[in-house]
Amino acid sequence: MTVQGHVEARRLWQKALQEMQADVLLVLDESGYLIDTVGSRPGLSAETLSSLAAASLMALREIRHQAHIGQSDDHELVILEGPQGRVIMGKGRQGLVFVAVLPPDSFLGMARLIFKQLLERQWNVALPSADDLSAPPFPGADELPDDFEELEGFDLDAIWSNGSS
């Protein structure tokens, strides 16, 4: 099944979030670029989690590569469990990566099933592209900032402290 457009995709991600009883679902590309977040969890940094998840999946790929065992045809799922909950992550078609954070009382079997469905779907949402400004990930995203000149003139000195952290 192919899901066209970000609005439809987002609706399905929200539905998946509810069915998995997850707190949060992150959608990213395989480099860790955060495309969307549904749900929330206090104290969770979506950007940091997405870059770490992408790195972990890259690590798995490198392990396969270094061990000469070949890449799997099936979608690889990683499940982490701890006393405060669970994390499920995996890479689906087109390199789209999903990360779900679940509370401890969630039903893992159901969550896993729903998650697999996410990975198996064909998501035709816009992924970041260096030279494709016309691929809007959100409705109305074709209204780009009308003043790139102002952006071009931005001076880093405005936020650069020259000090230490």
Partner: peptide, 24 residues
Amino acid sequence: TLFFDYMQMELGKVAGFTPRINLY
């Protein structure tokens, strides 16, 4: 570096938008 390093920075509001710069 094993995989990549990452941070995001915000420039504040410029041209009505908030540019978020992702550094890798």
